[in-house]
């Protein structure tokens, strides 16, 4: 209980991942869906850093860096598309985006 091991971090990462998945499944607003995706990416980053620390290997941290880079570009492109969609239809609900034709 007092000694913090790898399992503690893995359990924490599981809890955060579950919270993010609940958000992805129950949100209808696309902006809120993006927030939930950020939570998912961050929980994975925690487990990468923890494994990297407890096994004395830097590769986990490297992957966490690349995950952060991917998250940043996802936000840039996703928010741009979202703004275009909102200017055109004045609505960012998922149920409204059921057809693929632009």
């Amino acid at each position: 209980m007092i000694e913090i091991g790898l399992n503690h971090y893995l359990v924490l990462s599981t809890i955060l991942f579950a919270i993010g998945l609940v958000g992805v499944m129950k949100r209808k607003n696309l902006l809120m869906l993006f927030f939930a995706t950020e939570i998912l990416l961050n929980s994975v980053n925690i487990s990468f850093a923890a494994i990297s620390h407890y096994y004395g290997d830097l590769t986990g941290q490297m992957f966490a860096f690349f995950v952060i880079a991917i998250a940043a570009s996802e936000v840039a492109v996703g928010l741009g598309l979202l703004i275009v969609w909102h200017k055109r239809y004045n609505n960012i609900d998922l149920d409204f985006m059921t057809r693929m034709k632009g």
Partner: peptide
């Protein structure tokens, strides 16, 4: 206010937990 999906909340939480445990 942000609108939410009306669905089975327990199903959502259960599915999310199972998927998270599987991923870990």
């Amino acid at each position: 206010e942000v609108q939410e999906k009306k669905g089975n909340q327990y199903l959502v939480v259960g599915l999310a937990t199972i998927s998270a445990v599987l991923a870990v």
